[in-house]
């Protein structure tokens, strides 16, 4: 009796989360996938016909937005790594007893809704807003200068919104580095820059990897920043999916686009993991 209980225990523990995932992840995924291969219209209803043409249509019609999304996502991610590393480094190695405070400050914006913060960015960046107006008055910028509606505004917004998702995992990886290991590198004649390049950065790679996963994927499929800060020339694939699903009720097209994007992102992530040899790096850092 006891034996049976013990063998069953792990499965019982998995049950609540497992059921949840099955219900709200696997089931919709399967439905969506089936939907992406259907034909018809909203009035007469959609029927499953194994219509792979949906995918071809999605790619040809929205190639520009797809590529744009990946490019925005990539620029955002690279900028995030460059910006987050020093912040995480400083908190991890020089934060002292105030580390929790600094981490809290990094997380503080999360206490305000994502959409609300993006809208307030719009206020700041608007043509006669608090940022551009004084500069134009002072004659530093031409009266016609604007940021809102440009790719810059969208990428700024993406960077701003995803910053903590890059800082935190890098911080965690840096925090786990044994200070004695850093000293050992100094002891073995490494100058400060070499210590960083040969020891600190390699040991922080698992954190960078996690950060990339947590930012590149959602940033590439984001629809809020471009919607609020961009224009028709910055439309991202997330917006297209949203429009197809909610405005045009073209569910097969929306599903096909989503699945294609997912496939592209997964391929990218796996290729990236392969190149980095992540397993090795993760094992090393796990010690």
């Amino acid at each position: 009796m006891n034996r049976v209980k013990r063998t069953l225990a792990p499965y019982l523990l998995v049950l609540p989360g497992g059921l949840w995932l099955l219900l709200f992840f696997v089931v919709p995924m399967v439905t969506m996938f089936s939907l992406s291969l259907q034909q018809g219209d909203i009035i007469n209803g959609y029927r499953f016909t194994g219509h792979w043409q949906n995918y071809l249509d999605a790619i040809t019609d929205y190639r520009v937005q797809l590529i744009r999304s990946l490019v925005y996502g990539l620029i955002t991610t690279v900028a995030l790594i460059v910006m987050s590393f020093p912040v995480a480094y400083w908190i991890a190695f020089y934060g002292g007893r105030r580390k929790p405070t600094y981490l809290f400050l990094v997380l503080l914006p999360f206490f305000v809704s994502f959409v609300l913060r993006t809208i307030s960015w719009r206020q700041i960046l608007t043509d006669d807003g608090m940022l551009l107006h004084p500069l134009k008055e002072a004659g530093l910028l031409s009266p016609g200068f604007h940021i809102l509606g440009t790719p810059y505004a969208v990428i700024f917004g993406l960077i701003y919104n995803f910053l903590p998702f890059m800082v935190l995992p890098i911080y965690v990886a840096l925090e786990r580095i044994d200070p004695r290991v850093v000293e050992a590198a100094r002891d073995l004649y490494a100058a400060p820059m070499t210590v960083f390049r040969r020891v600190v950065f390699p040991l922080a790679l698992p954190g960078v990897f996690a950060g990339v996963l947590m930012t590149f994927v959602p940033a590439s499929s984001d629809y809020v920043n471009s919607g609020v800060l961009g224009s028709s020339s910055t439309t991202m694939i997330g917006q297209v999916v949203q429009a197809q699903a909610l405005a045009n009720s073209n569910y097969p097209m929306a599903s096909a686009l989503s699945f294609f994007l997912m496939a592209v992102l997964l391929t990218g992530v796996f290729a990236y993991a392969r190149v980095l040899g992540t397993e090795d790096v993760m094992n090393a850092a796990a010690r």
Binding site: D178, R180, V181, E183, A184, A185, R186, D187, L188, Y189, A190, A191, V199, P202, L203, D280, V281, A284, A285, R287
Partner: peptide, 20 residues
Amino acid sequence: VAANKRDVNMVFQSYALFPH
């Protein structure tokens, strides 16, 4: 003189080997 410019080497109690 900085540690990396001193011609002495240390063996740490925790070994401090480079894990990667």
